[in-house]
């Protein structure tokens, strides 16, 4: 499942690039809007990078099930002998590899532009590494629920963004705590806990949502 989805993504490499550039552009807008003062930028950097990552991850949610829904593959998956939650998990992992990992790799570069110190950059990467899979997992529920609903794109943001907020708080909080010298260990542990919980429960919820949508 993961390999199949990744192959499909690689055939449409432009999609991945679009998401990545969206991320870069949103982050780059802030220095232009706030003004190029390094002290201010350094304090808002974790929040800005995280919010941009949230939006970028959300933008790509629509693609997680839409194509399979359109050509009927999804209905085949529903009647497949393998448990649906497992197949969903595969799709989510593929989505994360295609949309989350590029953000993680790009983040330190953007952090440098905002003048984050080296340890801050490292924690930023780790927090994104732990946090973006949670975004994909939780977002999958929203994507499945809004499948084929009119105005689905805007609706999915209304459903998913409130559920993203805890990830944002702890992700950006980890970097903030590290930069201010408190150490981001606690925040990272909570992020990891969220990842474990989301990994255990959201595939079932997504599978249930898919069943409802394709009823």
């Amino acid at each position: 499942m993961v390999r199949r989805d990744l192959t499909l993504v690689m055939r449409n490499r432009a999609d991945v690039a679009t998401i990545l550039f969206f991320f870069v552009i949103v982050v780059s807008l802030f220095p232009l809007g706030v003004g190029p003062e390094m002290n201010i930028l350094r304090t808002i950097a974790p929040g800005v990078v995280w919010v941009a990552a949230l939006l970028a991850s959300m933008l790509s949610l629509g693609r997680m099930f839409a194509a399979d829904h359109a050509d009927g593959t999804l209905e085949q998956l529903l009647v497949a002998p393998a448990p649906l939650a497992l197949l969903v998990l595969g799709k989510v992992i593929a989505h994360w590899l295609a949309s989350g990992v590029p953000l993680v790799l790009m983040a330190p570069l953007l952090g440098l532009q905002f003048g984050l110190p080296a340890d801050g950059l490292a924690v930023l990467m780790v927090s994104l590494l732990l946090g973006t899979p949670v975004l994909s997992l939780v977002g999958a529920i929203g994507a499945a629920l809004t499948l084929g609903v009119r105005g689905g794109g805007v609706l999915v943001s209304l459903l998913v963004l409130p559920l993203y907020i805890p990830v944002l708080i702890f992700g950006a909080g980890a970097v903030d705590a590290t930069v201010s010298g408190l150490g981001g260990q606690a925040h990272l542990s909570i992020l990891a806990a969220m990842l474990v919980l989301a990994g255990c429960f959201t595939p079932w919820a997504t599978a249930a949502a898919l069943r409802i949508s394709l009823d």
Partner: peptide, 13 residues
């Protein structure tokens, strides 16, 4: 479908 979809969202929340 509206019942079940919004019900699932309520449960997640």
């Amino acid at each position: 479908r509206a019942d079940r979809a919004s019900g699932l969202l309520a449960l997640v929340g």
